[in-house]
Design a protein around this nucleic acid. Sequence first.
DNA 1: TAAATGAGTTGAAACGTTTTAATTTTGGAG
DNA 2: CTCCAAAATTAAAACGTTTCAACTCATTTA
Lengths: 340, 340
Amino acid sequence: MATLRDVARLAGVSIGTASSALNQGRKVKDITRRKVLEAASVLNYRPNGVARDLKTQRTDTIVVFLHDLAGPFYSELIRGIQSVADERGYATIISRGGVGRQIAWTRFVVEGRVDGAIVLDPTVPDEVIRSTACSTLPIVLLDRTLATPYCLHVAADHEDGAYQITKHLLLSGLRRIAFVSGPIDSHDSSLRFRGYHKALSEFGINIDETLVFRGDFTERSGLLAARAILSHENLPEGIFAANDEMALGVLSGCEASGIKVPDQVAVVGFDDIAIASYVRPALTTVRQPMYELGGVAARSLFRAIDGEQDVSSQVLPTTLVVRDSSKRPSVNDTPMAQSV
Amino acid sequence: MATLRDVARLAGVSIGTASSALNQGRKVKDITRRKVLEAASVLNYRPNGVARDLKTQRTDTIVVFLHDLAGPFYSELIRGIQSVADERGYATIISRGGVGRQIAWTRFVVEGRVDGAIVLDPTVPDEVIRSTACSTLPIVLLDRTLATPYCLHVAADHEDGAYQITKHLLLSGLRRIAFVSGPIDSHDSSLRFRGYHKALSEFGINIDETLVFRGDFTERSGLLAARAILSHENLPEGIFAANDEMALGVLSGCEASGIKVPDQVAVVGFDDIAIASYVRPALTTVRQPMYELGGVAARSLFRAIDGEQDVSSQVLPTTLVVRDSSKRPSVNDTPMAQSV
DNA sequence: TAAATGAGTTGAAACGTTTTAATTTTGGAG
DNA sequence: CTCCAAAATTAAAACGTTTCAACTCATTTA
C-alpha cells in the first residue's frame, strides 16, 4: 500500500506538503497541489486512518451497544442516532450483544477506538460501565440509570406509559387487571409495574397479588402466564403484559383456551413492535419514541464529546396506541392514538 | 490518560519491558511483571488501541454493511457472522445504510480501519466496491455478484427457492399463478422470477405477461398489485410475491376485496419474515438460511484475510415453509417443512 | 537598495504502541 | 573467582500520519 511518503517522493515535495495538499484548507500552491493529487492518483494512495486517528487523537466515530437487532424497534433508534451523527460527519458503528460483546467493549470503549458510546443493552454489567466511564470517553445510557458522574441518561417514560395504558383499561370500565412482569431485575419492568400500580391506586384499587405474574419478556413466558391466569378461579377483566412479546403469548394462551379477546378479557402490551398491528385481535400497546430517543441520546453524547460539563438526563413521553385487543363492545374510551 | 511511558516510569522499567509485561507470552521476570501490573493499576492504565493497530498493522475487526436493520432477518445473519468472528477474537461492527453509509465506507474500508468487510446492501454502488476492493482488504458480497478478482460471493439459492415454491403451488393443482416482482434492478427479484419461470415451464405453462406485476418490495406495492390482479377479468389461482412484505400487502388487498385466501386464491411470499407466521392466514414462504449464510460469509472472509488465494463462491439452499395461505382444501401437497 | 512582508515549503517532532538488535544481568559450571 | 550461556532488560526504530517552528525566496514597501 502506498503511503504519504511515496506520494511525496513521486510528487517531488516533502511529506508535510503532500499532507497539506491532500487535506484542503491549507495553503499550498495550486501547481503543487495538482502534482500531489496526480501522484496520489497514480499510486492509488489511500490515507491510513489509524495513523491519522493516532495523531489527531480522535476517531470521529461513536459506537452503539444493543442487546439484539431484531425488530424495527432498534432500527428506529439507530436511525435517530445516525441522523445526528451523520450531520456531524461522525461514523456510527453498532455492536450486538452476545459472546463478542466483551471483545467489542474492550476494543472500542476501553482501548479508545471511538469517541463516545451509547448503551442500550441491559446485559452490559453496571460494573463494566462504571469502571470504564471517565471524562475522556462519554457514555450515554438508554433506559437504565447508574450513579456515576460520567454517564448521561436518556429514557422513555415507562412509568407514565404503563400508567396511561392501565388507566385506559380502567376507563373502559375494567377493574380486575392482571399484570405480567418481566424478569425480576428488569428496570423497565419495575417502572411499568409502578405505573400500573399508580393508575390502580388512583381508582382506589389495591394491588391483588394473585393477579401479578412473573414472566421474562419472552412470548413463551406470556403463554405460560396466560395459562396460570386463566386457571384463576375468577377471570380478570384485563391483562397488562409488560411487553408485547409476552402479550402475544397471552393472546395465544387465550385463543388456546377459547377465551375471547377482548370480549371476555382485554389484553394490552408495551413497546408497539411491528407484529402488534398484524396479530388478531390487533394489540393495544404503548409506543416508545425510539427515533427521538436515538436523536436525543446522540445529541447528548456529542455535547459531552464537545466538553460540555453538565448535560442533564432526559425522559421522553410515550404514546398510547389503542387497537382491538382492548376494545370493549359497549364502552366509550378515549384513545389518544389510533393505528392499523 | 496514562500511557505506557507513565506506567514504565512508575514501575521503574523501560517501555519495552512494560509492554512485554502487559502482553502475556513474553519473557519477563515475575517480580517485574508484578511491578508493572501494580503501576498500571495505580495509574488506571488503558492501552491505546489505535496506537497498537498502527504498529501491528491489523485491527482484528471486520465490518458488516447492511441496508437496514429491521427484521430478525438481518439479526440472524449477524449472529451467524459473529459466532465465527467471536471464535477468532475479532470484533464485528455493523454499519447501516443511509446518508452516513458513505462516511462509514470511507472510514472503515477505504482508510483501512478494519481487516475485512461483508456487504449485504444493494444500495452500495458496484463502482464503489470495485474501486475499493484490493488484495489488502478482502470483501465478501452477499446476494450480489460483481466481476472482480478481489471479492468473494455468498448467496442463498433464490432461483431454486422460487422454483420450489412455484412447484408447490403447481403440485396443489393451481395453474394460473401471478408473479409480483421487486424493483426492476433487483438481482434477487430477477433470480426469483427465473425460478418461477422454470417451474412453470416444467409444467408446460408459458409465462402469461398479464399475470406479471411490478412491485418494489414494500407492503404498499403488494397491496396495489393485489388490486390490479383482482381487477383482472379472470382471477388467478395463486399469487407469488417476490418477498413477504409484498405478500402481506397482497393478503390485505384480498381481505379488502372479500377474496378468501387460500380458498379462492393462494398467496405465497419469500424470506420468511417473523410476521409471516403471525398473519392470518399464516403465510407460505421460502426461508433463507440467514444464520448459515452469515457463518459461511464470515468463514470465507477470514480465509481471505489469512491470505488464502482462491476462496470459491458459495450458494446455500433455501427451505420451503408451507403454511395456511397456500393450503387448498382438497389437494394433497408435499410440504418440505411445516411451521407455526 | 535594504528591509519588511508573507506565501510556500521543509524538517522534525510528535501520537502510543510493538518489536528487534544490542546490552546487561543472572546463575551456574569449571 | 572467572567465564559463559541463557535470561531479562533496554534503547531505538518503526508504524503513517499531522502540525508547527523554522526557513526560502520572491514581492512589496520605505
